[in-house]
Design a protein around this nucleic acid. Structure first.
Lengths: 376, 376
DNA sequence: AATCCTACTGAATCGTGGG
DNA sequence: ACCCACGATTCAGTAGGAT
């Protein structure tokens, strides 16, 4: 079974990390306070939604809807819920690395309060993501629109944390080569994935689908990252993290949920390194200085470069700068000046003649990068 | 031109309503305070989003993105924005009829604060609606998911206000005969619908598509209702309200927007009554007592009724009650008892044999209702 | 064997009107 | 205010048994 730690067993010493890939049993805020500062890369939080349900709800066939009326979802007032929310978000903030990000999922019952508090605590919202359900529960009384989605807030630690992980190219490739949008379509957690106890009842009333977590982790973490889930429940976050080669830490109060999560995670087979290689765009690739083309002999000083239509030309100087008429400077700056623009990507703007046709100098950069990759 | 009222011209006397189908020029809160209590059916509000833009944003081709950097979208802090939001929401609340509803649209920059404040002010959220854009602006820097949606909150005045308007049947009919979901797909406003000035520049930076407003008003208002828009802008709400046979009131500070809105609304041709007839369900039809079937001779005492499969039968008594075995009572109560359920719609459960087949007694109720309609 | 029928279920702030 | 009768209202999917 996956290790389960009681609160007293958690080592707060940064070098220990005995809490890695374990479930910490205890209150969310107390457990968070046992973890060291700036120790996790990403947090996924699925807090109580504070549904304020009235009486019972029946379907048109008079069957009863099995509502989420668990004690842990009950709060006396908005004030109490807000205080709870502020406490766990603040504790999360301390544990999060400076360039880490946090995801919080909710519905209209709670997500507005959560989002406002996140902003108040200086988290910087990067996106709100809509999980569109393919198969939501209908509105049985015909008094509202069918509540067919939930909302996730994705935020960095603060507005200045620019170096958070976002696997833009991988998301784009996974989405027919267009940018991944802020609305995602997934079925609710059903069928074989849904954990049931011996009586055939669901173990947890609000188990999230693994596909949702997989997209969250694939987009905002790298293999080996540490993912914290302060409301672990039956461990969807842990199961997906393990499968995707990420480390997890879960916090959970209820022993039933811990037992189910632990067994579930044990059964997960991690994917191999090849499957996990994240598609990266140019951003993640090493920077190449234009001068290194000259240094490596791929480009000779004095070479004449031009734009794709040979309307503008420039001469390569030995120091890696370019001259075009009166303009001199980097490939980017000169490219911008000759076009009268503020900026320009010189790698794609400037071309060289290889004897047959004009090719962008970017192809030479690719050769350099291949060499860099071989060198490890 | 549509009438434009200055603040002093607004009549606060309930019987005057000289502000109907006008644009009130002035500050939002001040103008709201000039309107009488409980005087509007629905409010649609598109408040400033408080975008906190950093520097300029350029596309990959180095063209500049024309951001919404207007003075009215600038707030010094979250506190200032919150105070502003609370003030206009509170003013709206007083003006709203007890069974009225309010729509507020926003993005992740402001919608969480707005939603939390709405809850604090005791508005009762009915749905959050996601407007999915078919053609959102891309994320040019590749650092986030494409922000492809905006969020609307639909709320009643308080939790006890149950008699708000929701045209459930019309929405369902408009959606391939399944319930309308909380995620709506529309293009952003451009092309001929987008108002441009003589220079070809857009008149308003955030003009909303008429299709969005049309669904809002078709779902939550009836012809003749009064729709208030406290941030009228270029009058999309007014134009759609007029077209759909609803009355509008707009509040706007900027003369340029007022001029554009006024001319725009003048050009709108209202639809006729036939086109505007709202599809309704059984809920809207008059109640019929089962005994009136007997009184009118459509059903004779002693008739034997059964369920659709002839598994259960019952005898009609002269007083409009039913007997089935030991159970006796109304068609609903006996229907529930014989099925072991808490409730049952006797009109659809019980059937009679017309010599050819079993028909639900509901067809007889329809005949009664036809007679009632003829009689006026 | 393939198809059909029935039962069940999912984070739900889910009615109206007369006495 | 509460109480109670009336009677309106569901989509996608899974599971298992019947045809």
């Amino acid at each position: 079974m996956s290790a389960v730690l009681s609160l007293g067993e958690v080592s707060g010493r940064p070098e220990s990390r005995n809490w890695l890939n374990t479930i910490i049993k205890g209150d969310c805020v107390a457990a968070l306070e046992a973890l060291p500062d700036k120790s996790v890369d990403v947090i996924f939080a699925d807090p109580p939604y504070n549904l304020q349900l009235g009486g019972e709800l029946t379907r048109p066939d008079q069957s009863k809807v099995d509502a989420c009326d668990d004690h842990w979802d009950q709060f006396a007032s908005f004030e109490v819920y807000d205080a709870f929310t502020r406490a766990w978000l603040l504790a999360c903030r301390r544990v999060l690395k400076p360039n880490g990000t946090i995801w919080v999922i909710g519905s209209y019952h709670n997500i507005f309060r959560v989002g406002a508090i996140m902003q108040d605590l200086n988290f910087w919202i990067l996106n709100d993501i809509v999980w569109r359900k393919t198969n939501p529960m209908p509105n049985f009384k015909g008094r509202r629109f069918q509540n067919a989605h939930e909302t996730m807030i994705w935020a960095s630690r603060d507005a200045n944390a620019k170096a958070y992980t976002f696997n833009y190219e991988a998301m784009k490739a996974a989405n027919e080569d267009v940018q991944m949008r802020s609305d995602w379509l997934f079925p609710i957690c059903n069928g074989g994935e849904r954990l049931k106890n011996d009586d055939g009842d669901k173990v947890h009333p609000t188990q999230k689908p693994e596909a949702l977590l997989a997209r969250v982790l694939m987009s905002s973490t790298r293999p080996g990252d540490i993912v914290l889930d302060p409301f672990f429940g039956t461990g969807t976050t842990g199961a997906v993290a393990k499968r995707l080669g990420r480390n997890f830490v879960g916090i959970e109060r209820e022993q039933d949920y811990i037992d189910a999560a632990s067994a579930r995670i044990d059964a997960v087979e991690p994917l191999g390194a090849t499957e996990l290689t994240v598609m990266t765009g140019k951003k993640a690739e090493p920077r190449v200085a234009f001068v290194s083309l000259i240094e490596s002999g791929l480009m000779k000083p004095g070479t004449i470069l031009s734009d794709a239509r040979r309307r503008v030309s420039a001469i390569v100087r030995a120091d890696g700068t370019l001259v075009s008429g009166v303009e001199a400077g980097s490939i980017h700056k000169v490219g911008a000046r000759v076009q009268g623009l503020d900026a320009c990507n010189g790698w794609t703007y400037w071309h060289f003649d290889d004897g047959q046709s004009l090719k962008p100098i970017d192809v030479l950069r690719s050769l350099i990068r291949e060499d860099m990759a071989k060198a490890g």
